Amino acid sequence: MDLDLLADCGRCSGLCCVAPAFARSADFALDKPAETPCPNLRVSVPGRPDAPCGIHGSLSERGFPGCVAYDCFGAGQRVTADWREGPGAARAAFDAFAVLRPLHEILWYLTEPLDDAPEDLRAEVARAASWVSGLTEGPLAGVDVASVRAEVGEVLGRVSAAVRGSSGPGHARADLVGRDLGSGRASRRALAGTTLRGALLMGADLRGVDLGRADLLGADLRGADLRGAALGQTLFLTGPQVAAARGDATTGLPDRVPRPSGWG
């Protein structure tokens, strides 16, 4: 499978600035209906590759940190229909993006290096990746994304348990909002190898915490302090999670997860 899962905004018509709805909140400074261009989008003419954001260099300062943390995982550049070419093209573009974006995110998890996983599980993950990749190539209208996500999630759950050496509940879906999880040498190691799937870690203090082999699939890291934290060996970490958190040059990240520009 040769599939680019990194966004290339220069090859997209700004779908992430048009297709989703924004709700005025700490993440977005305004309400925006779905399938409506953000007022900050400089809409270019059809046939040109660019549809630049007018405040791209100051999104967080202007009240749009949710945009900074958004990632289409390369789905945007695969949508061939151009929403600027009329209602029919717009409908095709929005429908395709609504399916491709979550499928690309699922593929991000399925293509993670898993050298520590048992061979049979690695083979199962490879088969799942081939299946999901095939879905992105075929008719998208009949794809049940929720079912795909559930089936793949079950596989990744078994991979996580095997790699971590534990299938216990850990901190899955735990409410850890604002918690100080980095005080003391013992606590800094307490989360290594645990599951934090779907955990709420908004604003949590994770400075210096060892998250080696922790499962972070779906964990909410908005505003979490990751300065000095070791995330280089975490499982299922994504760029959007990292972009929504706070870190610095001492924060360890997996090689394939882009380091936010402001982290040094």
Rank of each mutant, 00 (worst) to 15 (best):
A75G: 12
L237C: 13
G142E: 15
A92P: 01
L103I: 05
S147W: 14
W263G: 01
F73K: 02
E124S: 11
S147H: 14
F28H: 15
L5T: 05
V125S: 06
H56I: 07
P49F: 15
A128G: 02
G170K: 00
R127L: 06
T194K: 00
R91P: 01
E35W: 10
V177Q: 07
E61G: 14
L176I: 13
S160Q: 03
D71R: 05
D115T: 02
F64Q: 14
I106M: 03
A141N: 11
Q233H: 09
V99I: 04
A126V: 04
L216V: 02
L253F: 05
R259Y: 14
R173Q: 11
A92F: 00
G157T: 12
C67P: 11
G74H: 09
A230M: 05
G184A: 03
W263M: 04
R42W: 10
L6M: 15
L201H: 13
A150W: 01
R11N: 09
A249T: 03
W108V: 03
W83V: 00
A186R: 13
P87N: 07
L121S: 03
P169D: 14
D50L: 14
A186E: 14
G10C: 12
C67N: 10
G247T: 14
A7D: 07
L121P: 01
S147D: 15
A123T: 04
C17W: 03
S147P: 01
D95T: 06
T251R: 10
R259L: 08
G198S: 14
A174T: 01
G182F: 02
A128Y: 11
D4S: 08
D31F: 07
A23W: 09
L201C: 08
P20W: 13
D255S: 15
G182D: 02
S13L: 07
L176V: 05
L176E: 06
R42Q: 11
L15D: 05
C72D: 00
L110S: 00
C16T: 04
G208C: 02
P65C: 13
P113E: 08
P139M: 12
T250G: 15
A244E: 03
G262S: 12
R122M: 08
L103Q: 09
T111V: 07
P260R: 00
D8W: 11
L156R: 04
P139N: 15
A224M: 10
V145P: 10
D4G: 07
R188N: 01
L156K: 05
P37H: 04
A19C: 06
E151S: 12
V132D: 01
G232I: 15
L217D: 09
G153A: 08
V159M: 13
R11W: 06
F236G: 02
T36N: 02
P102D: 13
T111M: 11
A128I: 10
I55L: 07
L15S: 03
R91V: 02
F28Q: 03
R259G: 00
A23T: 08
P33F: 02
R62P: 00
F22S: 10
I106S: 00
